[in-house]
Design a protein around this nucleic acid. Structure first.
Lengths: 152, 152
DNA sequence: CCTTTTGTTGCGAGCTGTTCTCATTACGCT
DNA sequence: AGCGTAATGAGAACAGCTCGCAACAAAAGG
């Protein structure tokens, strides 16, 4: 009987997170997370966009599985879910360097920029405290017109 | 033939706003706006809730008309639209005393509290300026657990 | 190894919130 | 009062998302 290599192959944080919860790593899950990692943080994809990007690059993962995986990844804090509304929720890689960033959205073309601001975070904390709520997450959405769209 | 009273009845701001745009005042529109005025500002209703409240009080306005009217009232800045997600958008009377308030939402039971904070408004302005965007509106949504829901 | 257990997938049906279509109604101007 | 046109109601259509279930596949156990 062949023994395993003397070094343990390190499972990714994703995989070990799954394992510790009785869940399994699957090719589909790997593909979805990889996609987000490849495109980097700060880019927001809808479930539909994830689906078509995977389909285009030859991988086929059903839409239902994508929805399930996105929810899972959000729960595991690998992804962040944005409710920018207008055509479905969007997801982005949650970068732990910039945990609490906010969004500036052009309502006409959809261009989205991110920014951070401690005052906003504190405002959320303060409001939660005042009402006896336990804060989970706060997100500031600034609806605006980008330079291109505002002069036409 | 009976002539109208000698004084001109003053059209409401709503009515004159409509008129000036070639639009018409209708009983349905009046009912929807009245409902919001009766319940006061700071209460958020979904389209469905508006529909059932009207239905219960004997008025019948079709759901399609309610959606159309809500959109219209938002455009005319009588109502404010909130994207709190989870079961549809909600609408509230836009009080001009508290133009830029934000929301603290219990994600479990839906209880919603409002607060104001100038730092948030400024953060939005600042971000828009930095990216050359023209600010329209900013809304901070704080997702949290209310006291009741957080201890169970 | 082969079997059992159990988590996962894919597909299509179903659901919810919202918009659209279109025939009919009715507001408001003269 | 009559006319032009905006607005309504009813239901179909739609988008985004979830669900149920049979087939599948990865661990676990004999």
């Amino acid at each position: 009987m062949i023994s395993p290599p003397s070094y343990r192959s390190h499972p990714s944080p994703f995989e070990s997170g799954l394992r510790s919860d009785g869940k399994r790593m699957t090719p589909q899950r790997k593909k979805v997370l990889s996609l987000f990692e490849e495109i980097g943080s700060g880019i927001h994809l809808s479930a539909e966009e994830v689906h078509s990007k995977l389909t285009i690059s030859g991988e086929k993962v059903s839409l239902a599985t994508i929805y399930r995986t996105l929810r899972l990844l959000v729960k595991m804090t690998f992804l962040n879910e944005l409710d920018l509304s207008e055509g479905g929720n969007r997801f982005e890689l949650l970068s732990h360097d910039h945990p609490d960033h906010h969004h500036l959205i052009c309502i006409r073309c959809g261009r989205t920029e991110e920014f951070e601001n401690n005052n906003v975070i504190n405002a959320g904390k303060e409001a939660a405290t005042n009402f006896g709520f336990k804060l989970l997450e706060s997100s500031l959405n600034v609806r605006a017109l980008c330079p291109k769209c505002s002069n036409k």
